[in-house]
Computed example of a mutant assay.
Amino acid sequence: MAEHAVHSPLPGIFYRKPSPDAEPYAEPGSRVTADQTIGLVEVMKQFAEVKAGVDGTLVSFAVETEQVLSPGQQIATIEVD
């Protein structure tokens, strides 16, 4: 099956959850849709949603929560349907 790499749209800090006490947007092994949010990138208190981009199964995250990202850095891998 084909794999799709999800990349950071901008530099910032990556978060897998909408808030510290919330559940993660998605876990490895879960089904995702193209328009589903899988994380957030924060830059100067502004948050940008990171969408899956394809329908499939989230294989893994390439970064940890609260990791600093560079623009274009890979965030996750999705196995495409």
Rank of each mutant, 00 (worst) to 15 (best):
M1W: 13
M1Y: 15
M1I: 14
A2E: 15
A2D: 15
A2N: 15
A2K: 14
A5V: 15
H7C: 13
H7K: 15
P9Y: 09
P9R: 05
P9V: 09
P11E: 13
P11F: 15
I13N: 13
I13D: 09
I13Q: 13
F14V: 01
Y15N: 09
Y15F: 14
R16I: 10
R16V: 14
R16M: 11
K17S: 11
K17F: 06
K17L: 09
P18N: 06
P18M: 03
S19N: 13
S19Q: 12
P20M: 05
P20K: 09
P20T: 07
D21H: 09
A22D: 09
A22M: 05
E23P: 05
P24D: 01
Y25N: 02
A26C: 07
A26R: 11
E27W: 10
E27A: 14
P28G: 05
P28I: 05
S30G: 06
S30E: 15
V32E: 04
V32Y: 12
V32M: 09
T33N: 11
T33E: 13
A34D: 01
A34R: 07
A34H: 03
D35C: 07
D35L: 09
Q36D: 10
Q36T: 03
Q36G: 05
T37P: 08
I38R: 00
G39I: 01
G39S: 03
L40N: 00
L40P: 00
V41F: 01
V41D: 02
V41R: 06
E42G: 01
E42C: 03
E42T: 00
E42V: 00
V43I: 13
V43Q: 14
K45P: 05
K45M: 08
K45C: 03
K45Y: 04
Q46W: 09
Q46V: 12
F47Y: 09
F47G: 07
F47R: 05
A48T: 13
A48M: 14
A48C: 07
E49Y: 10
E49G: 10
E49D: 14
E49F: 07
V50H: 00
V50E: 00
K51R: 11
K51E: 10
K51Q: 14
A52L: 04
A52V: 06
A52K: 02
G53I: 02
G53Q: 09
G53C: 04
V54K: 08
V54T: 13
V54Y: 01
D55W: 04
G56F: 04
T57R: 12
T57Y: 03
T57E: 15
T57F: 02
L58E: 01
V59H: 01
S60Q: 14
S60I: 04
F61M: 09
F61D: 01
F61R: 06
A62H: 15
V63L: 03
E64G: 06
E64I: 08
T65C: 13
T65H: 11
T65Q: 14
T65S: 14
E66W: 10
E66G: 07
E66C: 08
V68S: 13
V68L: 13
P71Y: 12
P71N: 12
G72Y: 04
G72H: 05
G72Q: 07
G72F: 06
Q73N: 08
Q73V: 02
Q74C: 11
Q74E: 10
Q74I: 10
Q74S: 15
I75A: 03
I75T: 00
A76Q: 01
A76G: 03
A76T: 06
T77W: 04
T77S: 11
T77A: 08
T77K: 06
I78F: 02
E79C: 08
E79R: 13
E79S: 12
V80Q: 12
D81R: 11
